[in-house]
């Protein structure tokens, strides 16, 4: 024990000596030129000083992370490196965040345990893009499969689904977090004890929570309506649970009415998104495609088409 204390003490002394010896001007100019070097120096300094004062490891960890975050936001708004700080993630980090969004646990805060004060925009952006394209592709594939079962359905590629899916997914993943963030900021003004998430963190929570829908949409290719609904409910449950568990520590301090209303609105919007996807992209026979055949083809195909009508009603 004593030897360990001595060791740390010596280390500090060395560090202070080093600091005293090196002129201040030189170090600051160097850190301006080379950001990584300055970054490392600050992290070591803050870790040491907080470790000496605070016994709790988590506190110092948090403080160091905060310091790190302040360091990161140094570059100006119009510089490229400012935006690079939003994409400062590794493959393992992104995979860890996706795993965290897939397996929500009560009391396991996504922001605290996975983002750790470093929200990224890579995940939200590419998860949204993937979801939009997967929605459009599988929406088309269901039509192809329906045509395979029932040759009377005329299939033609529906490219407009890409546009619709892209616009709706991106709007949901950016506008809802914006509204949520604004609301929480307003509530913070009312109730001072609340510490809301930043806008980027909110976007990150929503972006990663949409990941569950990608496998769900692929599984919706199975043309069994009750199975589709089960998969939909499962994915929605997982995603909404992740959102609620993450938002709960923030809204807990607020009044019970506001907290309940906010969480139910969040879950309701999420359910609306899933329902919208299901009803718009996965109708087994959209009405647009039923209209043209009677004009082109003769009467027999028109009769053959009528038995498919109940099928289209069944899942929706």
């Amino acid at each position: 024990m004593a030897s360990a204390d001595e060791l740390t003490f010596h280390e500090f002394e060395e560090a202070t000596n080093l600091l005293a010896e090196t002129p201040d001007a030189a170090t600051t100019s160097r850190s301006d030129q080379l950001t990584p070097q300055g970054h490392v120096a600050v992290a070591v300094g803050s870790g040491g000083s907080y470790g000496a004062e605070d016994e709790v490891e988590e506190e110092s960890d948090k403080a160091a992370l905060l310091q790190e975050k302040q360091q990161q936001q140094q570059p100006g708004f119009w510089t490229f490196s400012y935006y690079q700080s939003f994409f400062d993630v590794d493959t393992s980090q992104v995979l860890d965040r996706i795993k965290g969004s897939l397996l929500p646990r009560p009391g396991h805060n996504f922001v605290r345990h996975h983002l750790r004060n470093r929200p990224d925009l890579y995940g939200p952006f590419w998860i949204c893009a993937t979801l939009a394209f997967v929605l459009a592709v599988t929406g088309n594939l269901t039509l192809v499969l329906a045509q395979r079962r029932d040759p009377s359905i005329h299939y033609s590629p529906q490219f407009h689904k890409v546009t619709v899916a892209g616009i709706s997914i991106y709007c949901y993943a950016w506008l809802v977090p914006l509204a949520l963030w604004g609301f929480l900021r307003w509530r913070k003004g009312v109730q001072e004890r609340m510490g809301p998430y930043t806008f980027l963190e909110t976007v990150c929570i929503y972006g990663y929570s949409l990941f569950v829908f990608i496998p769900m949409v692929v599984l919706w290719l199975i043309p069994v309506p009750w199975l589709q609904w089960i998969f939909g409910a499962l994915a929605l449950g997982l995603s909404a649970a992740g959102l609620v568990f993450t938002l709960w520590p923030v809204v807990r301090e607020d009044t019970r009415l506001v907290a309940t209303a906010l969480l139910s609105v969040v879950v309701l919007l999420h359910a609306l998104l899933a329902m919208g996807c299901k009803l718009y992209f996965f109708q087994s026979l959209p009405p647009e495609n039923m209209a043209p055949p009677p004009q082109i083809t003769s009467l027999p195909s028109n009769i053959a088409l009528s038995p498919t009508l109940p099928q289209s009603m069944a899942p929706s």
Binding site: V89, D90, T91, S92, V94, Y122, W126, A129, T130, F133, V137, P157, F159, V162
Partner: peptide, 20 residues
Amino acid sequence: NRRALAVYPVFLFYFVISWM
């Protein structure tokens, strides 16, 4: 450690073109 993150969008891009 970031190669997969950079390659994935390329994969998505060519996948969409292939689908078209």
